[in-house]
Design a protein around this nucleic acid. Structure first.
Lengths: 148, 148
DNA sequence: CAAATATACTATTAAATTAGTAGGAATTAA
DNA sequence: TTAATTCCTACTAATTTAATAGTATATTTG
């Protein structure tokens, strides 16, 4: 399961994406309000996303956060990883959060690992081709669909 | 990520599967030892698996646990669900652990949910066609592969 | 039947992770 | 210079997960 932190991050980034215009900052408080995210928590999350290079910021009055890339270039897999959420089901198949299993005699011949690897591939295939822009597109399609 | 509990469950069930013979019980302590799982914790896990109908048990001397079905019929998805591990990335797309998102105005038109649904489908497709027997088969294949 | 050996069950504790808060420093625009 | 904003560090609270303790109940075997 994704952490709340990750979900908040995605929602916040979607807000930035919807009003995307290069370097145009939006304030934390505005995002927190529209997305119903605890203000201070969001502050911490955006700071982290900034350190990861996903968003940029401007300090001072009229400051705020903005996407550092076009919404088409920011992938869901990147966001999940940047906010600490491993995608894999077991640490032994995680690229970014790898850890070997204490009990495993031989990782290479572990049948469970083999399956879990497949699951990871399938998940990453979807998550790494889906951008913020894609999510917004999907949203619009769904709205149309349910209006009819 | 799968919980340790789930991983222990899978390992324990694989042990039972490898020595499978209808209704032939194996003791907790033996499984705990070969799989390096804390004895008492495993006890609790097996009890749960029993209440879920995945294993059967016999009390008293010479008692123990045994698979209630053939290893080919026990699927990874079932084990994960039975030990409390949701497969979906968000509760709003989980079949067995469903919960709506507090902030979501309309679930049906949520773009993120739409993507996460796809990921779930892909994962379940693999996990629900993989049985204990399949995992063992994979293991044997891998052993052969790495021997050469 | 008694002793030994299992699981069944309930309750509790410990550890780890995740979520959220507090408060002041630094920066910028007006 | 003031107001508005992000930056940063350190905490605290809440929740979840992992593990343990101890007793009750059932079963086999001598």
């Amino acid at each position: 399961m994704l952490q709340k932190k990750t979900k908040y991050a995605i929602k916040a980034l979607l807000t930035l994406a919807k009003e995307y215009k290069e370097q145009k900052p939006i304030q934390i408080s505005k995002i927190a309000e529209t997305e119903k995210i605890p203000r201070k928590f969001l502050e911490a999350i955006l700071l982290e996303l900034r350190n990861q290079g996903i968003v940029g910021s401007r300090m001072g009055a009229t400051g705020g956060y903005y996407l550092s890339k076009h919404p088409e270039e920011i992938m869901l897999s990147t966001i999940i990883r940047s906010t600490g959420g491993p995608i894999a089901l077991l640490p032994c198949v995680s690229l970014n959060f790898y850890e070997s299993c204490a009990e495993c005699v031989n990782e290479e011949t572990c049948g469970l690992r083999d399956v879990v690897l497949e699951v990871r591939e399938a998940s990453i295939k979807i998550l790494s081709k889906t951008s913020l822009a894609d999510i917004i597109k999907r949203e619009n399609k769904l709205i149309k669909k349910f209006k009819v």
